[in-house]
Simulated scan of single mutants.
Amino acid sequence: MNQQEDYTEPNQNNKGFETEAESALGDLMSEYEEVPTMAFTMELSSLSHAGATDIGHRRRHNEDYYGIQYRLLKQETPQGSQSTARGLYIVCDGMGGHSAGEVASAMAVEVLQQYFESHWQNELPNEETIREGILLANEKIHAINKEKSRAGAGRMGTTLVMALVQDTEVAIAHVGDSRVYQVNQYGDILQLTVDHEVGQREIAKGVSPEEAYQMQNAYQLTQALGPRKNDLVNPDIQYLEIQEDTLLVLCSDGLSDGALLEDYGETYLTPLLQSKADLEKGVLDLIELANQQHGHDNITAVVVQMKLRPSS
């Protein structure tokens, strides 16, 4: 009969058998764990962008409008080039019928561009400054509605989505259902904004998404610029610190409807992160995709490519 012997694995809850070498190794590992991991500070290497808009297949006129303003300072050193950049990117989707929706969307873009010429100095504007600019645009559109005695569906208005980029810092602001997406270097496609519409409002109250979007008015906007006075407009504003190559996509719902970007992003968006990507062609390809899939609305897209590298 075989005799069974008790066996204890060394250093498995049996400190009495720990050697001096093992003890020293344990002390060294403890010290190593307390050393903070070094994180590289990233800087902007390049900032590129493109935008386009299209009437779509079913609308008689285009009420979308977009604007791009940027400044780029590039410095060459023996260690390489360094870019200091700032860009203002805006997409608006107008409403109110012919000669009204396009007026509202263009006005919003122009007012905000003029506003930030004097309210954006050396640092990214703070939340209050951005909010004041958006409310100024709302005030001007709302004043025209009052002057022309427009009411109900006759009031002109517009959605707004806006990105302010300064080096690796980004501010995102929106009113309505135009969106911003972020595509990272791993190909993840993240929706950064939440639509201001009845369905999302009900979800925020605790209603399930399935129930919320069975409502007849689920896609009705709860916020827009122009139809209401300032105290009823509450833009969402958020800040991002970009630490990796990133693509921002600003778009009207003519592009984002039907989960189009989520479903086709790997094919149409991820390649636009490549250094030699043709962003203008990429935007036109996105618009063509939307027209192929539905084309039921005006389609507008602005893409912003941010390339980063470790600071020298």
Rank of each mutant, 00 (worst) to 15 (best):
V283D: 05
Q292L: 13
Q75M: 10
A171C: 13
V304W: 15
G295P: 15
T37G: 09
D64N: 01
A143L: 12
T168Q: 14
G282C: 08
A39H: 14
G97A: 05
R155T: 13
K140P: 00
L250Y: 03
E280Q: 12
Y32S: 02
H296Q: 15
T193Q: 04
D54A: 06
Y7G: 12
G265A: 08
T267N: 08
N2Q: 12
A100N: 12
L272W: 00
S99P: 06
N122E: 07
P310E: 06
Y213W: 11
D285M: 03
M107K: 00
Q114L: 07
D297Q: 14
Q191I: 05
E9D: 13
Q3I: 12
M215N: 11
E22D: 14
L225S: 02
L272H: 01
G282L: 05
Q305E: 14
E63G: 01
L272V: 01
G187I: 10
K229H: 13
S178M: 05
E22G: 04
V198Y: 07
S45P: 03
M42K: 14
A21V: 04
T37N: 06
Q200A: 08
R58C: 14
D93A: 00
L225N: 02
P310M: 07
L72H: 11
L221Y: 06
L248V: 03
E22R: 02
M95P: 01
Y239H: 13
Q185H: 09
S45F: 10
N62M: 07
V233A: 03
S30A: 14
Q223K: 04
T41F: 15
P125Y: 15
E9Q: 08
A224T: 04
L73C: 10
D263H: 12
F17T: 11
G176M: 05
I141G: 02
Q79K: 07
T267F: 10
C92K: 01
S178A: 13
H196F: 01
Q305C: 09
S23Q: 09
I287E: 06
A224L: 03
T129D: 00
A50W: 08
E31P: 03
E280F: 10
S48G: 09
T19M: 03
L232I: 08
R201L: 09
E20P: 03
H294E: 04
P10K: 15
E128N: 03
D93G: 00
